[in-house]
């Protein structure tokens, strides 16, 4: 049996390929780590339905745990991953990287045409920002622009 904390520490260094400052732990994608008869099992939640990065994430998790033994990844969709699972440390890293972190609770997004949240500019921290496009460089982000410093920036959508 390997110490679970050692496995968690290894997973802290597995980064999301599309948001390379966030680890799978920061994102809250790892649901459970357990060991059965010398085999390590990891339950991983997909971020969103069409995420093309999931295969890469699974491979990276496997590779990072290889030194500890055989690893099996299970993709679990219940309960569904939401941005609420992202850690506070993760949100801070995201903002420092230049991506505005999700605002509000994911449960709000179950209603059609909810009002857009006030998103803070990650550069100058102004809240006077405009939505430029609901869909940004990846499906999990929207494109915003700051009215004060004019900087365009990505917003990690709340969902």
């Amino acid at each position: 049996m390997v110490d679970n904390e050692a496995l968690e520490r290894a997973l802290e260094s597995v980064m999301d390929p599309e948001v390379p400052v966030l680890s799978v732990m920061d994102l809250g994608l790892v649901r459970a780590i357990y060991q059965v008869k010398e085999v390590i099992h990891v339950d991983v939640a997909p971020t969103y339905t069409g995420c093309p990065a999931m295969d890469v994430i699974h491979e990276r998790i496997k590779a990072s745990l290889e030194p500890f033994g055989e690893t099996i990844i299970h993709s679990v969709i219940d309960p569904p991953w939401t941005t609420d699972w992202m850690t506070e440390a993760g949100k801070k890293k995201l903002e420092a990287y230049g991506i505005a972190p999700p605002v509000g609770k994911a449960s709000d997004k179950r209603t059609l045409w909810a009002p857009s949240p006030n998103v803070r500019c990650p550069r100058c921290k102004s809240e006077r920002t405009d939505l430029v496009s609901l869909f940004g460089s990846t499906a999990c982000k929207s494109l915003y622009q700051c009215q004060d410093c004019n900087e365009p920036f990505d917003y990690f959508k709340c969902f």
Partner: peptide, 20 residues
């Protein structure tokens, strides 16, 4: 139920986009 619970959040963004 599980598939729908996940997809509805993405779909609300699609619906907002097309309505706009």
């Amino acid at each position: 139920r599980h598939i729908a619970a996940k997809a509805i959040k993405e779909t609300s963004y699609h619906a907002q986009y097309s309505a706009e």
